[in-house]
Design a protein around this nucleic acid. Sequence first.
DNA 1: GCCGTTTTCGGCCCGACTGTTTTCAGTCG
Length: 565
Amino acid sequence: MDNLTVAEALYEIADLLEFTGGDPFKVRAYRRAAEALGLLPEQVADLVRESRLTRVPGVGKAIAAKVAEMVETGRIGYLEELRQAVPPGVLDLTRVPGLGARTAMLLYRRLGIDSLEALELAAREGRLRDLPGFGPRKESALLAAVAQARRRPDRLSIGAAVPIAVAVAARLRAHPAVQQVAVAGSIRRRAETVADIDLVIATRDPAAVSAFLDGLPPLPLPLDPLVVAPEDFAAALFERTGSAAHVAEVARMATAPVTLTESGADVPADPGASVPADRGPGESDEADAEVYRARGLLFIPPELREGRGEIAAALARRLPRLIARADLKGDLHVHTSASDGTATLAEMAEAARAMGHQYLAICDHSQSLRIARGLSPERLREHVAAIRRLDQWSDFRLLAGAEVDILRDGTLDYPDGILAELDVVVASIHSHMGLSEAEQTERLLRAIENPHVDIIGHPFGRVIGRREPMALDFPRILEACARTGTALEISASPSRLDLSAEHARMAKEAGVKLVINTDAHSVRELELLPYGVGQARRGWIEPGDVVNAWDLPELLEWLGRSSPA
DNA sequence: GCCGTTTTCGGCCCGACTGTTTTCAGTCG
């Protein structure tokens, strides 16, 4: 029984308790325990055997007993009781934006609604408006939301899709009949979200491979495999990687006569491919290079294959030398348990050092963000002192910073005197996201003009699939950033990826510096940098554009501070 | 349900927004 299975059961209890009207604090207690066990480095089963479960913070007697039951019997009686009370279709109702657990249960109890279809029908027939808390406006809003929820096909974030694709590819690679496997499609291009898993598989025994694929357990995403003979692998991978526009444009080009040089290569070394992209095992980086070589083109990295000028650039030998994970020297935006992170300052620092970072900036939330236990000026001063005390490594630098809220009027959540004591200031918007473009732009400009601000965090504030980007006059933002030397963040968090690739490319062209940060709230999230790198590569970003691709002395100079004593 | 140099009960991150309200309930982050 692995830890994640146990954690999932506890999460499910929390979800179901929400529906059955349980104490919200009890719900949170289960969520906290689930999170703690899911992140635990030790095996939960070992803790059960040694009666050490209740030593895990967030796990008390009651939850420990349920976890022990799960480990010993494979089930939790309490969970099964809860499942009886809430039909699966009712859980589905909360996919509708604006409809939560309480309303879902009200709809079920009063009108027997247990599916999106039943909800839509009841709304059409005007049966919702008489429910307590409902009215005609809410009814029509829900109707629109249902239509939207049903229209949008299920897509997974790139962060959820890559591990699944890599795992499937690894299983295929282990199959004796399989000669080559590659992940293709939008996953290989590192799109923000993906609808299916494209795989290209080379084999001499397609029947055996098909049988193996049919026997795979169901995945959260449809699998779209293409089984080919080994000699067709490169062409198939190229075609299946897309995008459609890119493939069509390459296909229109005549195949160039091959003129082998002494070394056997017919094109000069490709600057775009000189540093490997950060690819998981099972992901082929250049297996379709021959398709380009045959046309006299430089190899075009998958992230550029969107029909946005990459072929002209390849013809002109002017492809960018794209940034890669290996170029990044550190992370300039992470949280600790001082605000809303789950790991302590020491745990975050040690983990960053262990993964080879040269530096890490601790940027916890500022006082206005109460929900995240934002730090008062006094607590921030203590936190900075703790950071300075801990920063005693010879090969690693811990920087003291803050993610300071940009208030509604564009002023910052700490006075300038406090900001001046910090090594790094990330300024972010977390409230009043719905201002007009004019107001929002003025607000952000005011923060950019503050000389203490080094970085604007997740500039558009979007959450993919959940919150639209804020309205901003981006060219004006870029002009101000370029003039003041303020960097824009590319958040590596797969739920944000903010800036978008298009905005990142605009920033580069405007001479604005970028920074790829994880915004990690746990040790595990420190590993998310590759998704930010993928997004940056889609934006044609090179190492020189990214301040955390610089070594520490260069970074410190940019931050306006002299080298450490 | 968890937790305790606020310690065995009474707290538990809280504010914005929306639509329904006449003082609030639900959702969201």
